[in-house]
Design a protein around this nucleic acid. Structure first.
Length: 307
DNA sequence: TTCATCAGCCGTCAGCCCGT
DNA sequence: ACGGGCTGACGGCTGATGAA
């Protein structure tokens, strides 16, 4: 493969491509040390079907068709093999392009789109006697008898059991829990009735545990939370073959839920990535236009001087 | 109004990569 | 080796739009 370095090629220069057996004239406008806008137009003078070039920095590589196909194939395979995440691409773009506007660096923090859910779930651990609680857990699968789903967080544990009892095992807030409290359970959260959002009244039993009075009992569904804060653990107590099946289905639900969220996040990043690319195109087109105009005026200046 | 088409969104699956 | 995250691909759903 022959290399044609743009520092060696000037407008109209005839360049022999050696082992390609081709002679081409190269019209090459090269602006050294410009990150963008090196334009090259390669025109074959003989009839070699296609001239393929690849660019590396300021260097143009002229390759044979076979080499080109091979390289393209390899490139395609590499792209198929592993496309870096949009976050990576965006970060690379933003560090590469430095001053280019419209580039937003994605950080771990701003990729955390489920902050609100976390905050809502956070509230569940701080159960107090006087305020309404938002316990956020979504509903998908019905817990069978014998299984216990725990929603745990540092300092407090809310246990939901399929006998429709909500047990608050340990608040960790030091507040004595007496009387009837109201839990607002949204359909985006931990426990819902089939009808959606439900106000569940629960009371504290003599053993200190809270329970839902029988009048409130419905087929509450229990599933994994849409987003659990760090340190939050959902567990199920199992012990039977039936439980194994439930465990599997619970795991599946959790996996699907996480994947759902991941897909949503991925789409969000993809959109952002495309926006950034569009911005970049606009910026580069602008720069291109400016440089072309500059080149044109310099050419005119040069022609005037020559004449 | 009804129907067809299209675009956009969402959920799911599969496969790859990466950290443990 | 395994589990979890990421993302392309696919199919279904829904709303907008235009033609009949």
């Amino acid at each position: 493969m022959d290399m044609v370095n743009d520092s060696e090629v000037t407008q109209g220069q005839q360049t022999d491509l050696g082992d390609t057996g081709q002679n081409i004239s190269v019209v090459h406008v090269a602006i050294p040390n410009q990150a963008v806008q090196v334009q090259s137009v390669i025109q074959p003078t003989s009839q070699p079907s296609v001239i393929h070039t690849t660019h590396q920095g300021n260097t143009i590589h002229v390759v044979t068709e076979d080499e080109f196909e091979e390289a393209e194939g390899k490139k395609r395979r590499e792209i198929l093999n592993r496309r870096p995440s949009y976050r990576k691409i965006l970060n690379e773009l933003s560090s590469d392009t430095g001053g280019i506007s419209g580039m937003t660096k994605i950080t771990e923090e701003d990729s955390n789109s489920s902050q609100e859910g976390m905050e809502a779930a956070d509230g569940a651990s701080n159960l107090s006697t006087s305020q309404q609680q938002n316990v956020v857990v979504s509903a998908t699968s019905v817990a069978a008898a014998g299984s216990t789903v725990q929603y745990q967080q540092a300092g407090g544990t809310v246990t939901v059991v399929p006998t429709h009892t909500i047990q608050i095992a340990s608040h960790g807030d030091g507040i004595p829990h007496t009387g009837v409290q109201t839990l607002t359970m949204s359909n985006t959260g931990l426990v819902t009735s089939p009808g959606g959002a439900t106000i569940v009244q629960y009371a504290q039993g003599p053993d200190g545990q809270f329970f839902i009075p029988a009048t409130n009992v419905q087929a509450y569904q229990i599933a994994t939370p849409t987003s659990l804060p760090q340190g939050v653990v959902m567990t199920t107590a199992m012990g039977s073959p039936q439980g194994v099946g439930e465990e599997a289905s619970r795991k599946r639900e959790l996996r699907l839920l996480k994947n759902r969220e991941a897909a949503s996040e991925c789409r969000r990043k993809k959109k952002e990535y495309i926006k950034c690319l569009e911005n970049r195109v606009a910026v580069l087109e602008n720069q291109n236009k400016t440089l072309m105009e500059e080149l044109k005026s310099l050419k005119e200046l040069y022609c005037q001087k020559d004449a």
